[in-house]
Write a protein that binds this DNA or RNA. Sequence first.
DNA 1: ATCGCTTTCTGAACCGGTTCAGTAGACATA
DNA 2: TATGTCTACTGAACCGGTTCAGAAAGCGAT
Lengths: 341, 341
Amino acid sequence: MTVTINDVAQAAGVSKGAVSYALNGQPGVSDDTRERILRVARELGWKPNLRAKSLSSAKAFAVGLVIARDPRLLGTDPFFPAFIAGIETTLVEHEYALVLTVAASADAEELGYRKLAADSRVDGVILTDMRVDDSRIALLKSLRIPAVTLNRPETSSPFPAVCMDDTAGIAAAVEHLVSLGHTKIGHVGGPQSYIHGRSRRLAWQNAMSKAGLEAGAFIEADFTAAGGLAATAELLRSAQRPTAIIYANDLMATAGQSYAQSLGLTVPDDLSITGYDDTELATYLNPPLTTVPADPLLWGRVAAQQLLSLLGGAHAEDVYLPSPKLVVRASTGPVPSLPNN
Amino acid sequence: MTVTINDVAQAAGVSKGAVSYALNGQPGVSDDTRERILRVARELGWKPNLRAKSLSSAKAFAVGLVIARDPRLLGTDPFFPAFIAGIETTLVEHEYALVLTVAASADAEELGYRKLAADSRVDGVILTDMRVDDSRIALLKSLRIPAVTLNRPETSSPFPAVCMDDTAGIAAAVEHLVSLGHTKIGHVGGPQSYIHGRSRRLAWQNAMSKAGLEAGAFIEADFTAAGGLAATAELLRSAQRPTAIIYANDLMATAGQSYAQSLGLTVPDDLSITGYDDTELATYLNPPLTTVPADPLLWGRVAAQQLLSLLGGAHAEDVYLPSPKLVVRASTGPVPSLPNN
DNA sequence: ATCGCTTTCTGAACCGGTTCAGTAGACATA
DNA sequence: TATGTCTACTGAACCGGTTCAGAAAGCGAT
């Protein structure tokens, strides 16, 4: 039925080994023989059997991604689908596949990596959502799985990182708001256990102090719409009530904007709002959202490239992607002239 | 280093074959020997080598999912991440993995399936986004890959389907709006080349005629925010201007709602709006969206179960999941008393 | 005691590749 | 001519399981 290397060997009148050398471009056969073998293989329609290759070469020809997130909230995150699509664009060119695992809890996450390792399902993994003091680094080291991380974790990591600076975008948002006259600029951040939750808060903090302003109110939320709403409610109730809020992602910003509007506030006249991600929806909100594009597609593509070159034995260094630029839309405007509380 | 079946055989003083029988619960060894072998295997910490198993049993122990969608829009679809999470909940219990492919074009989609087949990466696939006259059915038949489809395609398909009726939810939306006094109810649908684009439009049409109303204006959009906006603009410009619009998904509904608001219309006082999906964000919009939950998590879980039992040789019949019920929120209200155009 | 049947187990082939040790022949060198 | 070196290739082992044909042992029936 299917053509094996044996059939090719027989048809070409050489040994199995010679065929293997010829097909893999390795030395050990003359040019004449090589060509003949290749021609015969083509004529017979030979296709390498991935399973056999996997067994003898001890490689999986696949990379893994473990997504740790509450499944019910997973759908709201615009990052992963596009990120995965980016990974794919690289993988298809190299005949690699993507094995995806979704984990609902921290235990399940660790188990996910352990299973990928135990079954040798993948040759390497990409780590997203890096946490401060991320336990996965030690785990993967002990499992001997090569990895690439998104952004460089603070703890020492032996894995190359693909970095996209998010602080410039947040700083630009602060400067933009300051230029509009805002001085009370709050921040609704992601969990500070994530390095991108932290870095965005620090970027906001630093940009504020650079502008000679007090950092003002910060609420740690969880990147969800529900969290964004609750945080917004708290900020708007507070004595330090801000005239502008910088959110760590679009989803929280959208929920916050809707909530503010439901209170009768006008965005941006009464409250300016910025997000992060630049989801498709951001453009189509009322008002459209000022935000920072994250370019998960590019990130995925480069992360996969980096991982593959690491697997290829290359000495992989950190890669720095261009920092995304603030996209100004109608959700930000001049500071209200009258006190708004 | 790693313990193989040979090591176990040697340690237990039996042959390789006996160990294989014992470990797989097959007849051919006495109970005493079986227990001894299992004990030795446990003591030695033997783990089956998936690659070797794959080669000799000609199975991949993985299922595939090919998502055909523009990568830039993929992030906006709340369906897939949750659906995948649902698939995973089933797979982890059976030591199966999920191989995910993202395809940007129709060609890439077909190539995706062909590659999964050529490399025997998977033992079966799940087909989502079924199209009218879906070419994938013939493709998978010719590739001899078992499959499960989401909903039953109209063309004859040899594959079991996991069905979730979306017509009841749309019909309920129509009835709900009719009970609020609406008579001019438009529909912004998905591409009619998709069976769920079609079935929702037909459900709207049928429910309208059942209520003794003319179906009214229908616009075929593309499930994107941009498409939802354009369709809404067209409906609101038309002579048949509706007082309520039923959208085929939340994303288009959200864009439509924002657009209507940007025109100065109030939702629901001037225009009632319903969506489909019940994304997290739907609850947190202003006003919160009346919509129909899709339960992709359940769908994924059951689809994977169905596929695994099919792979296990079971005679698989179609499964019918409960039809989701309309969730009424504040984006729908009484018909405006005055003509609104 | 012989026959036939079943249970239990072994040894080897097999899945389809990779890789290594070894050999035959061509060729250059002394 | 004997020696050494290189190239081109073969045959077999190997990766770690599954599976099948066949052998040995146990057992009851004749």
